[in-house]
Every structure is written in structure tokens, then in C-alpha cells.
Simulated assay, not measured.
Amino acid sequence: MKDFIYQVPTKFIKENGAEKKIGNELAAAGLKNILLVSSGDSFEMPLMKEIEEVLRTSNIIYTRLQGVQPNPHLTLVREGVQLCKREKIDFILAVGGGSVIDTAKAIAAGACYEGDVWDFFERKSLIECALPMGVVLTYPATGSESSNVAVINNTEVQKKLLISSSWIIPRYAFLNPVLTYTLPERMTARGITDIFSHICERYFCEEKTVGVVDRMAEASLKTLVEIGGRCLREPQNYELRSEIMWIGSIAQNNFLGLGRTQDWCVHALGNELSALFNCIHGD
């Protein structure tokens, strides 16, 4: 096992109704002016209304930013950066899956930077601070709710690049498996595929054995195989949805990648394909 430094500052709140605790958590941290980032899709509206009511009850001001698409676009990130600076936002809350979370992460970094946020992706500048952020997870797949990575698509230059920094790890992850009950079967399958791939990119490495980390990765992979198909057949099974949600988090916050050389060529290929042809991640 190689040496490592590991820290995940994310506070996980996993329960039925986790989103109802947003107000208390943010108010206790002294956060008063937040940016709500979402796709704006109609199926999310009941959840968004509930979250907005929770924020109002806690006397937290919020500003909406909607329109996140799969393969999240740089144009909306830039819009969000300007919104944060203009409205003096002190916290960002992403409501959705990986595309929404990655958009929020990029905005969080860009809001504390005088230049163009794309500089971070092209390695022209390093992230030295970011606004704090949290996640209400509605689509387990990318594990972005507790990872240090964000991937953004710049359609102007047909590049989909990533940033990696401890500054953009979410402070809170509100995990309510019930919120995933209505995911279409295809989306659920994409998510499970992506989670499986995240583990494989770490598991198949140069080191012949990493003992306990190998065993944890194997257990996660075997569990996905055992429950993945069942989750498609039983979409409202709370226990199955809970397991998928939690494996998605630990698959990408590097808990299963400690002490090893990692690959990521499959994801690099996937990013190129989605940048050029707008393929949906997981397909």
C-alpha cells in the first residue's frame, strides 16, 4: 500500500426526509444567503418548493439558478459565478445529480477568482479558495456529492475537462433514498454502471494487492452485481436504493482508491466522446 493523506469533510445525512434538515444545518453554520442550483425540470418542482419553504422557515435568503443539462455547460457556470459575486452569495446548494453538483462546484471555485473559471480546467491557475457548498442528491451515479472532482463541458472548444481540489468537496450531503424512487429505469442503470466503473478504475491497478482496500472494493462490486438488477425491478425498495446511494459516494470520494495507482483511461475516453457527441455519461 502506497502512502496517502485522506480527508473527507462532508457531513452525510442519510435518512427519509433528509432534505428537511437543510435549514437547521445551514442556519447553525451561520449561512444566510445561498444559491440554489438545479436543472429546473418539472419533476423536480415539488422537491424544490419543499426546500425553498425549509429555507424561508429558517430565514435563509436564496437565489435560483436553473437550466443545468447533462454534460454540464461552461456557459451556465459563468452565469452562476457572476450571480454569486453580484448577490454576495455565501453558500451554494446543488439539488440534483452529478451534472448539477459539478456545475455548483465550478461556480463555487469561480466565485472566489478574478479571472475566467475555465482557467482552472486548462491548468492556467490553481484553486486557492471556493465558496462552501452542499448537495441534495437525487441521482446516485457520479459520487460528486463527496468527491474533490468536477467535470465541465466547454462547447465552444469541444472540450470536457475536470478540476480536482479539496476546496470543492461539499460540506453537506443530504441523502434521501426516497427521492430516487421515480428515476427512470435507464437513468438508474446508467448510475449503477458509472459507480461500477469508478471502482474498477481504482481496483485494476499496478499494485498486485492492497489488502483491506481490495476487499472493500470487491465487496462493493459484488453488492452492485447482486442488487443492481433488483433495483431496476423494485424501484421503490428503500434498502436497495440506500445501498446504491452509499456505494455511489464511497466509490468516488477515494475511500476505495487509497494506497494505489489509479487508471481512469475509460473515463477519459468517455469524456472525449461526450464532448464531441454529447453522449450521456454511463451509456
Rank of each mutant, 00 (worst) to 15 (best):
86 R>C: 03
152 I>A: 13
229 G>W: 01
202 R>T: 12
246 W>H: 06
106 A>E: 04
167 W>I: 00
259 G>A: 06
118 W>I: 12
132 P>V: 04
82 Q>A: 10
49 K>P: 02
233 R>N: 13
156 E>K: 15
266 V>Y: 12
218 E>Q: 05
209 T>W: 00
2 K>V: 02
9 P>E: 02
207 E>V: 05
111 A>E: 10
244 I>C: 02
282 G>M: 08
27 A>D: 07
262 Q>N: 12
215 R>E: 14
148 N>W: 03
178 V>A: 15
81 V>Q: 07
25 E>V: 01
271 N>F: 03
153 N>M: 10
125 S>P: 00
28 A>D: 11
11 K>Q: 12
108 A>R: 12
23 G>H: 05
24 N>I: 13
52 E>R: 14
161 L>M: 14
221 L>N: 02
280 I>Q: 08
272 E>F: 06
176 N>K: 02
12 F>G: 02
49 K>M: 14
208 K>Q: 14
233 R>G: 08
149 V>S: 14
82 Q>K: 12
190 R>W: 14
277 F>Y: 15
94 A>H: 04
257 G>I: 09
196 F>D: 06
125 S>I: 00
17 G>P: 10
243 E>V: 10
215 R>N: 11
238 Y>L: 15
201 E>L: 07
197 S>Q: 08
87 E>G: 00
92 I>W: 03
25 E>Q: 11
253 N>E: 09
224 L>S: 08
277 F>P: 00
33 N>E: 02
180 T>D: 04
189 A>N: 10
223 T>H: 00
201 E>G: 08
217 A>H: 05
38 S>M: 08
97 G>D: 05
76 L>W: 07
189 A>P: 01
158 Q>T: 14
16 N>C: 09
76 L>D: 00
142 T>Y: 05
